[in-house]
């Protein structure tokens, strides 16, 4: 930190002050002056898709952006594993220093209390079930694929902490990478039905807000997820369409990604 001592440090503090004052003054100006803009139109249309407005926002209006966001998680995991040694490459013609390969984490489970020993596994199973509940209810209540993935990998980590490396939930290398690939690939491919029938990638053919999808596609992707909203004004029907499917794919992706990070750090990565 020698660079930030003395005169340089003072200059850096002045610079930070200027940045801080500028940024805060802009926030003060913005307070109370936010224009709703496009969100008014979104909110007026949201009831035609999923009752959970956030699910509609994230997976329908800006669904393609969420796909790339999902890819960020996947890439983050792949890069983390790469740092540890998975998939490091060298030029065949030009030998360099040997690539980094990490050893497994040294941890031993010796002082496990009886309660943890017997309740750990049921807790992990409960967490798994909770994850399934969260992902299936994505379009009607809070939750979704991201959350499900995080909850399920939390169960994995819990089992690893309680029972060590030979825990009951032993995800293998191939399984974790496969499930991540299936998740992200599945999410990507869920854009295809809309693309092939209407020309718009990831058009929600099940909900079909704009009535441009063929009725058979609307039936296939819409009927299984149809919801009814019973109000005193009457009963209203809507279908979240492909949103529940995207959420399942999302969950697989997150399990694969976070699972890969846990796996690589716990077991290390050494090429056979």
């Amino acid at each position: 930190m020698n660079e930030l001592r003395g005169k340089r440090g003072i200059l850096a503090v002045i610079a930070l002050l200027i940045i801080g004052i500028g940024f805060l003054s802009s926030l003060f100006e913005l307070a109370g002056n936010v224009r709703p803009g496009v969100s008014q139109i979104y909110n007026s249309l949201a009831h035609l898709v999923a009752p959970n407005n956030i699910a509609t926002w994230v997976y329908d209006w800006r669904g393609y952006d969420t796909l790339l966001e999902t890819a960020v998680i996947y890439v983050g995991a792949v890069v983390s594993a790469m740092v540890i040694g998975r998939g490091v490459v060298q030029m065949k013609s030009c030998p360099q220093e040997p690539p980094a390969q990490s050893k497994p984490l040294e941890f031993h489970i010796e002082t496990l209390t009886v309660i943890l020993k017997y309740l750990g596994l049921p807790a992990a199973i409960l967490l798994f079930s909770y994850g399934i509940m969260v992902v299936t209810a994505s379009s009607t209540s809070g939750g979704g694929g991201f959350q499900c993935g995080v909850i399920m990998t939390a169960a994995y980590l819990l089992a690893a902490i309680f029972y060590g490396k030979n825990n009951p939930i032993r995800f293998g290398k191939r399984f974790i990478i496969g499930i991540g690939a299936a998740g992200l690939g599945g999410y990507t491919l869920l854009g295809l039905p809309g693309f092939l029938t209407t020309g718009f990638w990831q058009y929600n053919i099940g909900a079909d807000v704009w009535g441009i999808a063929p009725s058979i596609m609307r039936f296939i992707f819409g009927e299984p997820f149809r919801l009814s909203l019973v109000l005193k004004e009457g009963v209203f029907f809507s279908s979240p369409g492909i949103i529940p499917l995207i959420n399942v794919a999302e969950a697989f992706n997150v399990i694969g990604a976070i699972g890969l990070i846990y796996f690589a750090f716990i077991y290390g990565w050494q090429e056979e």
Binding site: A71, V75, G76, V78, V79, M82, V88, V89, A100
Partner: peptide, 18 residues
Amino acid sequence: IAVEIGSLIVVGVVVGSG
């Protein structure tokens, strides 16, 4: 998202050479 994923991938490509 393009800037975000782009920077992450740059890191991956560089780390790949080990």
